[in-house]
Design a protein around this nucleic acid. Sequence first.
DNA 1: GATGAATGAGTGTTCATTCAT
DNA 2: TATGAATGAACACTCATTCAT
Lengths: 203, 203, 203, 203
Amino acid sequence: MNETKQKIISVALDLFSQYGFSAVSIRDICKAVDIRESSVYYHFKNKQAILDELLQHFESTATGLMSRLEQELTSVQKDSEGNLFEKTCDCFFEEYLMDEYCNKMIRLLSIEHFNSDEIRQKYDYWVLDKPLNFQTKVFSLLMEAGVIEKADSRYLAVKFYAPIFLFMQRWLLSGTLTEDRKQIFRENAYGHINHFFDETGGL
Amino acid sequence: MNETKQKIISVALDLFSQYGFSAVSIRDICKAVDIRESSVYYHFKNKQAILDELLQHFESTATGLMSRLEQELTSVQKDSEGNLFEKTCDCFFEEYLMDEYCNKMIRLLSIEHFNSDEIRQKYDYWVLDKPLNFQTKVFSLLMEAGVIEKADSRYLAVKFYAPIFLFMQRWLLSGTLTEDRKQIFRENAYGHINHFFDETGGL
Amino acid sequence: MNETKQKIISVALDLFSQYGFSAVSIRDICKAVDIRESSVYYHFKNKQAILDELLQHFESTATGLMSRLEQELTSVQKDSEGNLFEKTCDCFFEEYLMDEYCNKMIRLLSIEHFNSDEIRQKYDYWVLDKPLNFQTKVFSLLMEAGVIEKADSRYLAVKFYAPIFLFMQRWLLSGTLTEDRKQIFRENAYGHINHFFDETGGL
Amino acid sequence: MNETKQKIISVALDLFSQYGFSAVSIRDICKAVDIRESSVYYHFKNKQAILDELLQHFESTATGLMSRLEQELTSVQKDSEGNLFEKTCDCFFEEYLMDEYCNKMIRLLSIEHFNSDEIRQKYDYWVLDKPLNFQTKVFSLLMEAGVIEKADSRYLAVKFYAPIFLFMQRWLLSGTLTEDRKQIFRENAYGHINHFFDETGGL
DNA sequence: GATGAATGAGTGTTCATTCAT
DNA sequence: TATGAATGAACACTCATTCAT
């Protein structure tokens, strides 16, 4: 809606996700937006409020994305499961881990997650627990459908997600996100997925 | 060495690893050491120098530990490999990931790794690349010795280490390091190791 | 008159008389009136103008009140002087010192009287000189009428008013004006008046 | 002891007692002391701490003075009471109400006494209650000694002190304290004292 | 009549660092 | 070895005010 406010939000995300919340001053943000420092306080109560709005917006975005993925999971026919899995991973990679906006937010969470319990919880949830829970659900469904053998779906999720998480740390959160790094991540991730299904059998 | 300098180093490690480098002021350190702020500058050129010394000491410690592990690896008889692997993991977990000193340093690296290329490199090396390379070497040796089937030893290392890395993030770097969290980590990690060898076959 | 302007004036009086002029921001006033800060400047040239209008209104009110008292003083028959004195005091106490509006304004003057010569003069006039002059006139009249002995009417006025002034400071200007405090003031003040006339003889 | 700290204290007293605590900025103080703003924070935790130290020092000074007066009161022979009273008043006027340091502090209390309960209490105590209590004790002693007739010593104290208080407000706290104003105060105050004793009889 | 948006000047405060002793 | 004293640069934030709409 409001143009200046949007600019502030956007610049703040860029800077916070690169240098961390406390290393970025209101001055820095204002320089980039080209407004005077006092103007920020017309749009936001204080510096923290910018971070809060950023976090809140991310959570609703991520909630939307993940619930979309979950819905697709239960609404498709059985014969398309291989396809579905591929699509789900694609979406999770491209629209979450590597999406410009979400990647910045995940970066921000990972930078700030040691600073406050609140952010630590969000980080743990959105980067570790939620993806693991989602993946667990996926494997449960595949087992019910008889596509893969019955086993400990939670551990299967860990085995599946842990390398993804490691590649993300290595290529998507370390340094600037370039197309090159994205490509390396994709190769590693899809390589892992292929191996994984060869072993797990099926699909 | 010098007593005061040691105290500063030790207190700085405690605080930096908990709140991050820039969030800790010289004042904070001095309060804990019970000296005046100006005294710090007798022992260190500036604040950064404290961090540098911390990093340097860690690198030589970690180098020592890892080369010890590597040496043990090549010097033992073949019939003890199962045992050796177990010992190696034990050592890596207890004396590296969960050791009070090393855990604090890893925490510090993981807090600060977005701040400078220098630290990012160290983080990537000591938390991701080095352990992966070591594990790769382990599996290569096991393959040569015919203990496990020949395969892509690098990918095997990823499959082995990624869950460890994930559990570390979840339990050893998130929040305060308590005995409870250590125990949860151990259960998860050893659970994974057992599963892993059941599947990989052998040992 | 204008409704919004009235609200601003009224809220400003409440806040200024409680916290002082400079401690109250335009924001504070607007929050209480529920308008935006820029709107104030439609009704007033600047913050000072609100104070000016408050002062001006008080001065005409107080002028009205005091001249009414003075008029009554000269227009009544001699046999009612005791009654008159009582009535005059009553009016001065209830409609001036303890009247909600006037009390707030006197508070405001007493808070701000160190800030500018202008307000200092008004404070000195309305809280010290004017009441003393009035009282001097009262005693002069009573002397002329032979009700009390001839004496230094000015000093008599000081002896009469000073305790009232002291009780006012203690009970009517210190802290919030409650019914309890008003009552304590009344008891002290009327106690003083009775003593005073026993001594002065007469009435 | 410390020169700079003393200067800050002294300048702060000058400015606070003239313009009020919040109207004086750290910048103002530093300009007068000729130090940089950050230096203040070496000597004081924050702005409030300067005020606190000022208040604390005044209270111990005033406590000292008043207890000295009280001690003298009980230690002198009966035949010197007239003399004593005069001396006591002199001391109270010259070393308390008109003493450069104490006058500034009383001014400060009277400026700030509406701002916080803490200061309001100190103001009420040191400007109203304590002097009244002291005077009450004086009259009690004089009554016991038979120098003046037995009567309500508290009301006598009010009658005695209220005009002093009024003259103080008018001449010692309103505007700058000049020798002229001091002289006017003295004339008014001693005039009152003489009248008072003519009436009270005795001495 | 009212307000959304912006701003310049100022406020108290923190911090790493210096330097004479 | 240690520290008392000082400082420049930065920081988040507040405030009265302006002006186009």
